[in-house]
């Protein structure tokens, strides 16, 4: 027995109505204005490259180096990036940071790769807290090549927070 046309149309109309009624409820209850706002840039300060190495800025803003890199105390203040997350109080979220080598700082044709992104807090199921806001700080490690060309290097990266 074939379903009638009117029954088919009725199902479609019901589906649309259900969607319109249900989704606002989901929106209001599960994801109320979750935002992630950048409030501070990541800065590695100034250094000379020598025969290369790495410069690391921790999520606390502490700078360290490996190899022949010489860190300079002038010419820029090392800082960790800062984000302000706003959302439902008590909600948990997961922080996703860029993968190694996917973010480059560039100055003209010269580049340096950012690796080892770390954050505080970090990982999965991070509680947002009762206030509904939290600050995330992000650090990374910069790979400096031998005789890296002098210059001001800039780049951009993204951080994602997912709510279960």
């Amino acid at each position: 027995m074939k379903p009638s046309r009117s029954r088919s149309r009725s199902h479609s109309t019901e589906a649309a109505a259900l969607a319109l009624l249900t989704l606002p409820v989901l929106l209001a209850g599960g994801a109320a204005a979750q935002t992630l706002q950048n409030t501070g840039a990541l800065s590695f300060g100034a250094f000379s490259a020598g025969i290369g190495g790495t410069v690391t800025v921790s999520p606390l803003g502490a700078r360290s180096k490996t190899g022949a890199v010489v860190l300079a105390t002038q010419g820029g203040t090392p800082m960790a990036a800062q984000f302000l997350i706003t959302g439902t109080p008590g909600a948990t979220y997961t922080i996703t940071l860029p993968s190694d080598g996917t973010v480059l700082l560039s100055s003209g044709a010269s580049t340096m790769a950012l690796n080892g992104f770390t954050s505080t807090p970090s990982g999965a199921n991070v509680p947002l807290g009762g206030g509904g806001t939290q600050t995330i700080t992000v650090g990374a490690s910069l790979t400096v090549s031998a005789n890296q060309a002098p210059g001001n290097y800039t780049g951009a990266f993204s951080v994602t927070v997912n709510y279960p």
Binding site: S43, F47, A72, G76, I85, T154
Partner: peptide, 22 residues
């Protein structure tokens, strides 16, 4: 679509470094 966008918030930041000549 907007609902999923709200469940996954994204934030961009800049990064910088200065290489000086030795």
């Amino acid at each position: 679509a907007p609902a999923w966008a709200a469940w996954a918030a994204n934030g961009g930041a800049t990064a910088s470094a200065t290489v000086v000549e030795a």
